[in-house]
Design a protein around this nucleic acid. Structure first.
Length: 258
DNA sequence: ATGCCGTGGAAACCACGA
């Protein structure tokens, strides 16, 4: 089974790229972020024609997350990360698919620092950590996939010194990511590629993609049961070079069949 | 060193992103 995550940066503006990528790589489950579309403007017909069922949580202009699945119906569990009833951003959706819990997230960027956006990011990260602890304790096979807006270590950024004061790389954020993983999650890309430089995002400007000036900020965290089934993983980095591409590339993992 | 590019929505610019 192949599970992918892809920050599309506008699901409608990016629809041709998304459909081409789906048809070329045929992932079984897809987590999408940054739909940038209200609930009623999710391109469900095109997604269905591509062979996928979908659940999504839209929002006008910004944010927005979705889970696509072919073969097995995604049964929605929740569409809000617990812990703050006043958080109106569409940044989280969770479903059971074929006995597995799939959690799709778009963690706040947090810039500029300091400020309310960074405080919101840290609070959101804490809510995620609290929820993830419950998932680990439950023993359910779970994957938490998405755009974490967190650069875990110096190995995950082309020039660490340029990012030292950025909300993606500040010590508090690296520590939050480390503490989350320490609950018992496996960072799938790092398990498969322990020492390689792997990037999932390249800025639109400064020729970042052609210079390979990238960041690794899209992650898969796997519970023990799923980590034991992990065989391969990768980044579809060619997609980043396509016409009208997102600034992120799709990331994927392969699990053995249950 | 820097939103230099890109999207969506509203309004011919702005907010936002990483």
């Amino acid at each position: 089974m192949r599970i992918a995550t892809y920050n599309v940066n506008g699901v409608n503006g990016r629809l041709p790229v998304l459909l081409r990528w789906l048809s070329e790589t045929s992932p079984d489950v897809v987590c999408l972020q940054e739909l940038k579309a209200p609930e009623e403007k999710f391109p469900l017909d095109a997604i269905r024609e591509a062979g996928y069922q979908a659940i999504w949580h839209g929002q006008k202009s910004w944010n927005g997350v979705a889970i696509l699945s072919r073969g097995h119906e995604p049964a929605e569990v929740r569409r809000v990360l617990p812990g703050d009833p006043n958080d109106a951003n569409s940044r989280y959706i969770e479903a059971t698919i074929d006995g597995m819990l799939v959690c799709c997230l778009y963690l706040p960027n947090g810039n500029p620092v300091p400020g309310p956006k960074f405080e919101y990011k840290l609070r959101w990260f804490q809510r995620l950590t609290d929820h993830a602890a419950e998932l680990i304790a439950s023993g359910i096979p779970a994957v938490i996939a998405g755009d974490y807006n967190a650069i875990p270590t110096e190995l995950d950024v082309y020039k660490p010194e340029h990012w030292i004061n950025d909300a993606l790389f500040l010590p508090e954020v690296r520590l939050a990511y480390k503490n989350l993983v320490a609950q018992g999650w496996t960072d799938a890309i790092r398990k498969i590629y322990p020492t390689e430089r792997i990037y999932t995002f390249w800025d639109y400007f400064r020729n970042a993609y052609s210079r390979n000036a990238g960041l690794r900020i899209d992650h898969f965290l796997l519970s023990r049961q799923l980590s034991n089934r992990l065989t391969t993983a990768g980044v579809d980095r060619d997609v980043r070079g396509w016409e009208k591409s997102s600034d992120h590339a799709p990331v994927w993992i392969e699990l053995t069949d249950n």
